[in-house]
């Protein structure tokens, strides 16, 4: 296929199935020598081609099936090739040798549908290929740009100026089309931090507001009858009391019990349940 390549060409080589590395190297060397130092050779896997983000109109020649003819390419790969080829650039596809003519014709129409013109079959005589006539499909990108347009000179007055933010949004949306592109350069997020971001909260700010950190003031339950309520009212410090439950709140859960209730920590009692206290609970204010 090297006969389609000339000196100083920018060549794109697209492959699909993995072949022996030495085979790839040999073929690549041939092309590389032919284009010389002034040309370039880019090798792309078909699946990655759309993600590689080549600029449009950069390649002179695109070769498909250089390493292995046993391949079929999707429309989107050919469309992308049409975009990144220069106007009048050449596409060469080596179709499957075992294919019958119908599929070959199919391939011709596929290339045409993807935007190529002058698509023809050309025979390749490769060394070592013996009697097998190897066929390649060759086509050209049109001399105009894909999707290009000429503005018609009809003026309806001034067009709106392009808003800076609108174009920023477009760049953003384009960037978002490929979320998994690992080659995009990232900022070092550590550099976003400023001096004050490294400061941690001091211990004082972590305390509950108005809480002094000391023991919490005791609270009496709603129907307090053990004297705690009166004591608190009188401003006296509550003293530990012997176990007694006359307030009627003990059977309720902790939410309703006195701060000195011996049943604290136990579930609410069910009607008729016999309640017994362990030694730790009998110790007042444990």
């Amino acid at each position: 296929m090297d006969k389609f390549v000339s000196e100083k060409d920018n060549v794109l080589i697209v492959w699909q199935q993995k072949v022996d590395e030495s085979v790839m190297k040999t073929s690549l060397n041939v092309i590389q020598t032919k284009v010389g130092n002034a040309g370039t050779v880019s090798v792309e896997n078909a699946e990655r081609l759309n993600l590689s983000g080549h600029h449009q109109s950069v390649f002179d020649v695109a070769l498909f099936g250089l390493f292995s003819a046993d391949e079929k390419y999707s429309d989107s790969v050919f469309t992308e090739a049409a975009r990144i080829l220069k106007p009048n650039g050449k596409i060469v596809v080596q179709p499957n040798v075992k294919d019958d003519s119908q599929t070959k014709n199919g391939s011709i129409s596929q290339l045409k549908l993807c935007g190529f013109v002058n698509v023809v079959e050309e025979s390749l005589k490769e060394p070592g290929s013996g009697d097998v006539t190897v066929i390649a499909l060759v086509g050209n990108k049109p001399s105009y740009e894909v999707g290009s347009s000429t503005s018609l000179k009809i003026s309806f007055g001034k067009s709106k100026p392009v808003n800076g933010n609108t174009s920023a949004k477009q760049v953003w949306s384009l960037s978002a089309l490929d979320m998994d592109d690992d080659d995009v350069e990232l900022i070092d997020d550590d550099e976003l931090l400023q001096e004050q971001d490294l400061v941690k909260p001091d211990a004082e700010s972590l305390k509950a507001p108005c809480g002094t950190g000391g023991p919490k003031p005791k609270k009496a339950c709603k129907n307090c009858s053990c004297g705690l309520a009166e004591e608190l009212e009188a401003g006296a410090k509550p003293k530990p009391k012997p176990v007694s439950s006359a307030c009627g709140s003990c059977y309720l859960g902790d939410a309703f019990r006195c701060a000195s209730c011996p049943y604290l920590g136990m579930p609410a009692f069910k009607p008729g349940e016999k309640v017994s206290l362990g030694p730790t609970q009998l110790r007042a204010d444990a």
């Binding site: 960037s175 995009v184 990232l186």
Partner: peptide
Amino acid sequence: KFIMRKNLPSSS
């Protein structure tokens, strides 16, 4: 990984 991309315009 997206929001830290260098090429995002500063007026986005």
